[in-house]
Amino acid sequence: MKPALHPLEDDRLRELRRYGILDTDKEREFDELVEIASEICEAPVSVINFIDDSRQWFKAEVGLGVRSTPLETSLCGHAILQGDYIEIPDTLDDARMADNPLCTGDPGFRFYAGSVLKGPSGLPLGTLCVLDHKPRELSEHQRKVLRVLSRHIMRELDLRLALDQEQTLRREVDHRVKNSLSSIGALLSMKARRETDLAVRRALEDASGRIRSLSALHAELHELDGDDLVGLKSLFMRIESDLRQLLPDGIVLAITVSDDRVGPRLANSLVLIVNEFIANSAKHAFGSSSGSITVDIEVRSGRLTLVCRDDGTAGPTEAERAATNSGLGTRVIHSIASSMGMMPQWRASGRGMELKMVGAVASTAN
C-alpha cells in the first residue's frame, strides 16, 4: 500500500526543505547515531530518513546500502502519519505493509520501529528507524533510546538552521553598514567641495577621511572567513593604517606583528581585541593631551603573546575596573579571550594601561 499524503503535505515539504538537509553528503555524526541505534536495538538495519515528495532519502544508514528508495515502497511514509512513535512487530500482519515488496521479499523486513523526526511546528519530516528480518518487539529501554536519539537529530538540525540564519543576517547587516558608511562618506565629501569656509571644508574633509577609514576597517573585520590562512603582518599593516585615520591628533599608534599565518578565527579575534583596546585608550587614557599606543603580537609554535599598552593616566583603579569587565569594551575583550581559552591580564600604575594575553593557540588553523 502506498503511503497517504500528510494532511498538510505542502507545509510539511516546505519545512523539510527549509532545513537544507536533502542530498547532502554523509556525515560522521549522523552515521554514529544510526550505528548506536542499530547496536542498542539489536537490529541489522537502522536509518535516518526524510520523506520527500516522491522518495524517502537516507541521511545515514546501517545495513541498507542505498541513499534513497521510491515513496511507493516507503515504510516510513506510513510511520510519519502515526504520531511520535510507531512499532510494528510483524509487518505482514499490518495491512499497510503486508503487500510491500520490501517486506514480502527474501529476506524481507518483518519488523519496524521508528521515532518520528518533527520540526518546530510539529510537522513530521522523517524518522529514525530500525528494521529486522524477523518479527519481534523492542524493550522499553530500546524504545527510549530511539526517542532520545531522534530528539538529538532534530536538535542538531535546528542548531544548523539557526547558524545559517544568523550568518545570513550578519551578511545583510554588514552590507547595510557598508552602504551606510559609503553614503555618509560621499555626502561629507560633497559638502566639503561646496563649502567656501576653509576651516569648515577641512573639518568636513577630515570627517570624510575618518568615515572612509572606518568603512575599510569594517571590511577588514568581516572578510576574515573561509579556510585560507591569514598573514598577520600584512593584515595588521592595513588595520594600523585604517586605525590611525580614526585616532585624534596627537595620539601615535605603533603595531608590531610577527610574520605568521593563522586561521581566520584567530586573526579575527586578534583584530577585535586590538581594536577595542585602541578605542578605549583613545577615549579614556589621554584626556586632551597627546600620547602613544603600542601593540605587540607574536605567534610562535602554537603560542600567542599579545601585549597592548598606552602611556596615558590609568592607574590601579582603572586596571581593577578593566579586570572586572565594568565597561563594554573590556567585556568584549574578556568574552573574546574566554572563547580563546585565555584570561586577559590588566596592569596600570599611573603611567598607562597594559593588556597582556599569553596562551596556546592553533596557529595554523581556524
Rank of each mutant, 00 (worst) to 15 (best):
R261H: 09
D260V: 08
H222P: 00
R244I: 09
L253M: 07
L232D: 05
I239P: 04
S269N: 15
L246I: 15
G263I: 12
S281E: 05
L232K: 10
A282C: 09
G231F: 02
S281I: 13
M237G: 06
L272D: 12
M237K: 14
L243S: 05
L229T: 15
N275Q: 15
D249C: 02
H222F: 10
L235V: 13
E240D: 13
K233A: 14
V271P: 00
I278C: 06
L221W: 01
I239E: 09
G250Q: 12
L235D: 01
H284W: 10
I251N: 02
L221H: 09
D260G: 08
R238K: 14
G231M: 01
G226R: 07
A254S: 14
V252K: 12
S215Q: 10
S281H: 02
E276H: 08
L217A: 11
S281T: 13
N275Y: 05
N275F: 02
V230W: 06
P248F: 05
F236D: 06
T256P: 01
P264E: 03
N275R: 15
L246W: 03
L253C: 03
K283V: 06
L266I: 09
N275G: 07
S258W: 07
H218G: 06
H284Y: 13
L221D: 03
I278G: 02
R261M: 12
R265E: 12
L221A: 08
I278D: 03
Q245S: 13
S258A: 12
H222T: 14
T256M: 11
S215T: 07
E220P: 02
D228C: 03
E240Y: 08
P264L: 03
G226Y: 02
S281A: 15
I239L: 14
V252Q: 14
S234H: 10
P264I: 09
V257D: 05
D228N: 09
S241H: 15
I255Y: 04
L247R: 09
V230C: 01
L270T: 04
D242M: 04
L266D: 04
V271E: 02
S241P: 03
G226I: 10
G226S: 04
V262E: 02
D249W: 03
H284T: 10
A267N: 01
S241I: 10
M237R: 15
K233N: 11
E276C: 01
E276R: 12
H222K: 11
E220G: 01
A254R: 15
S281W: 05
L270P: 00
L224K: 08
R238V: 10
V274W: 01
F236V: 11
D242K: 10
K283Y: 00
H284I: 06
S258M: 11
